[in-house]
Amino acid sequence: MEVLLSWTVGILFAISVYLLLNKNLIRVLFGIVLISTSVNLLIFTVGRLTHNAPAFIGNKPVLFLSSYANALPQALILTSIVIGFGVVSFILILITRAWQATGTMDSDKMRESETMDAEAPE
C-alpha cells in the first residue's frame, strides 16, 4: 500500500509540475490544486499507514498499545486542506480579475507592470 501511495504521490507531483510550467494561468491553477493534494497525500503516507487500528485507546491501554493509528497526520492534512482551499479560491478569483483587467490568460503577456512605470493609485 505504501509503495502504491508513494508512486501516486510521485506521479501527481510530476503532473502538477508540468501544469505549473504552462503559460496558461488556468492550467497553473490546476497545477496548484494538484500539488497541494499530492502534498496532503504525502503527509498521509509518511505518517505511516496502520490497518484496522483505533486512533483513540480505551480503558485498557495495554491491550492496544502495540498497534494504534496515529491521528496527527490526519490533523495536519485537515489543516492544510482548509488552508489550501482558501488559497486556491483566492487565486481563482485573482486570476479571473487579472483576466478581466488585462484581457489575457497568457502569463508571458502579463509583463506590462514590469516594463511600464507602474505607480500605485492612492
Partner: peptide, 12 residues
Amino acid sequence: KFQLEAAVKYAV
C-alpha cells in the same frame, strides 16, 4: 491592472 498582474506572480 498592474496590481492584479503583479499579484498573480507573487501569489503563485
